[in-house]
Design a protein around this nucleic acid. Structure first.
Length: 271
DNA sequence: CAAAGGTCCTGCTCGC
DNA sequence: TGCGAGCAGGACCTTT
């Protein structure tokens, strides 16, 4: 599920409720998600005060004085802040309990998420070390995308979904950004001119920013920290709309598969 | 049976 | 022959 807008929406929901609060216990109901979860997590976190919740790519970074908790929502994860003591469901894997009575609960049906403890700073963690620029950073722009695409034979959609090229763009927003930029998703990345990458970089930033403002996109599992869905779904131009009318030209929205992922575009609006 | 919003890892091919 | 880069596919897991 969660691409950058959903992770950022989650971060903004959590931070004001939990920053400055002290952990009193951690309940692990599942030994591993994508990777094993440190069984000592409760001992590590109990008594620690949460200093900040930040984001790098689709990772949430919980900073404590003794180290860092790295959390990824995978494909179906979500976090909620609830009162301590609520019964846990089948897919509620981790509860982090705070001394003020709040509980941060991780739910993840597909178990592709990750909860990793790291002593000390996390900037050079292997999972973060090779990530590309944030889409809102100054070093992400059309010139950069154009340069990274030279001699690349992959589809442009795969290029912008490559987290080493730019972080945060997943399957939904890749289709949406390419629609806004007027570029067919199956175009070979290396064959697209610089000016079109200017449009694409801007489209990526715009669609992500608008989705964050709407609280993300909910297709199935995603929920904001307070349990509400994200409201960007109604703004999607092509994703999930195969066979429906293009909201720009009235033609039929097409679908295809690129890199094993379903892909949506308008043959008339995108070249 | 296929597919669902992610991404790490393996192994193949190609070019120097 | 060796090495790196680029790329496709499999893997993880559960639900619809």
């Amino acid at each position: 599920m969660p691409e950058l807008p959903e992770v950022e929406t989650t971060r903004r929901g959590i931070a004001p409720l939990l920053c400055g609060k002290t952990v009193c216990d951690v309940i692990l109901r599942t030994a591993r998600l994508r990777w094993p979860i440190d069984p000592e997590l409760s001992e590590r976190l109990a008594g620690q005060t949460l200093e900040a919740v930040t984001r790098r790519a689709k990772y949430l970074i919980f900073s404590f004085s003794s180290g860092t908790l790295l959390l990824h929502l995978g494909m179906s994860g979500s976090l909620r802040v609830i009162p301590a003591g609520l019964a846990a469901g089948r897919h509620d894997h981790v509860d982090i309990l705070f001394s003020d009575g709040n509980c941060l609960r991780l739910t993840d049906p597909r178990k592709f998420g990750a909860v990793l403890w790291s002593d000390g700073p996390v900037a050079d963690h292997p999972l973060l070390a090779r990530l590309g620029p944030e889409p809102f950073a100054a070093d992400f722009n059309g010139r950069y995308l154009h340069q990274r695409s030279r001699r690349r034979q992959i589809a442009v959609k795969s290029l912008i979904m490559d987290q080493k090229v730019v972080v945060g763009v997943g399957n939904i927003y890749a289709s949406e950004a390419l629609f806004r930029a007027g570029i067919r998703p199956d175009r070979t990345a290396g064959s697209i001119a610089a000016a079109r990458y200017d449009r694409l970089a801007e489209a990526v930033r715009d669609v992500l920013a608008e989705a964050i403002a709407a609280g993300g996109t909910t297709l199935q599992d995603f929920q904001q920290v307070d349990g509400r869905p994200g409201y960007f779904r109604q703004n999607l131009m092509v994703y999930g709309r195969a066979g429906e009318k293009c909201r720009e030209c009235g033609g039929d929205v097409q679908s295809c598969r690129i890199g094993q992922r379903s892909t949506f575009f308008c043959r008339h609006c995108q070249r």
